[in-house]
């Protein structure tokens, strides 16, 4: 049973990757017309254009172009950047140590904010605490993360001088200076997402509190705290986990935007420079990486949900 579920998911995953690569290839390479002209401009000399076309492989049929790019992706070869003349993978690898920790820390911070506040609001449903937390969530949801970033810089960098306003010293400068420069972007990314997640946590806690197992636990004389930690939260975690999976897509996109605001040399700066310089191999590579990671994360979360849920296991649906 497990094997069948796994193989189905893997085939689906592979199909999504192929489909995504086709979409990106079509939009970036085929639809805009001749990439060589786009890169060099309309007044470029014909022989220069031809040389570039040959270098990019544009003189070959489309299907061959696609397969050479896609088979490169499988071998983790994203092609060569036009402006840097270095492999796209190297450029991405240089930026990942900023973007990846930023996205990951933000996701953790999102959960750290959302779970306590959401659970508290759910337990104190309709009380003053609940209403205050809910209003707070509604407001944080409405705040654009770039604006939050600017306000945070104004308070903690410009006025108080506690944290840097932007830039990145590199992990070589030590863990603390590097983390320090990621703190504000992290908060800016996490707060709006935490508002979304906290609503789910609240709804789940309210839903699970009405279950018979909570009544049973209460009858056995368990403390409210024990009931929350041992019975309500573990049961509420599954939907929360799948929402967190969906939030990864927003966090990845948000990271790219917020990085720009803090002048962090991450994937965001790489892709925006690439757009402006019409460096298509980089655009394709980074777009594929972003979309690929969203697809991968959602599949893993989906699969994890099937594996974790004990109810599915008892029925023998997920595990043999």
């Amino acid at each position: 049973m497990l094997i069948r579920v796994l193989s189905q998911r893997l085939i689906g995953l592979f199909g999504f990757f192929v489909l995504a690569s086709i979409v990106i290839f079509l939009v970036v390479d085929v639809l805009p017309g001749d990439p060589a002209t786009l890169m060099l401009g309309t007044d470029a000399r014909p022989d220069t254009l031809n040389a570039l076309r040959h270098q990019l492989g544009l003189d070959k049929p489309l299907i061959i172009q696609y397969f050479s790019w896609a088979s490169g992706l499988v071998r983790l070869d994203f092609g060569t950047s036009m402006t840097y003349a270095t492999p796209v993978l190297t450029l991405i690898a240089e930026r990942l140590p900023i973007s990846l920790p930023l996205a990951a820390f933000s996701l953790i911070l999102t959960a750290l904010i959302a779970i306590p506040f959401g659970a508290l609001a759910g337990l104190k449903k309709d009380a003053a605490t609940d209403r205050i937390i809910r209003t707070g969530m509604q407001i944080s949801l409405a705040i654009p993360n770039i604006w939050l970033a600017i306000v945070l810089v104004l308070i903690f960098a410009v006025s108080l001088h506690w944290l840097p306003a932007g830039g990145f010293p590199g992990w070589g400068a030590g863990v603390w200076p590097a983390v320090r420069s990621l703190l504000l972007p992290m908060v800016a990314l996490a707060v709006p997402q935490a508002a979304i997640l906290a609503r789910i946590v609240r709804a789940e806690v309210i839903d699970k509190s009405q279950e018979n197992f909570v009544l049973g636990a209460r009858a056995r004389g368990l403390s409210d705290q024990a009931i929350l930690l041992r019975h309500i939260l573990p049961n509420a975690m599954l939907p929360v986990l799948s929402v967190m999976g969906l939030q990864c897509a927003f966090l990845i996109a948000g990271t790219v935007i917020v990085e720009t605001g803090f002048s962090l040399p991450g994937l965001g700066r790489l892709i925006f420079q690439a757009i402006n310089q019409r460096d298509m191999p980089v655009v394709k590579g980074v777009a594929m990486l972003l979309v690929g990671s969203v697809i991968l994360i959602n599949s893993v979360v989906d699969l994890a949900a099937t594996l974790i849920d004990p109810r599915l296991r008892r029925r023998g649906e997920a595990l043999p």
Binding site: F16, A249, I252, A253, L290, V294
Partner: peptide
Amino acid sequence: LRLNDFIFAFPALVTAILIHTL
């Protein structure tokens, strides 16, 4: 439903970057 899941994997930012090239 599967197609939905697929479009969902393209954050508006990535789609905007792709459309920007057009």
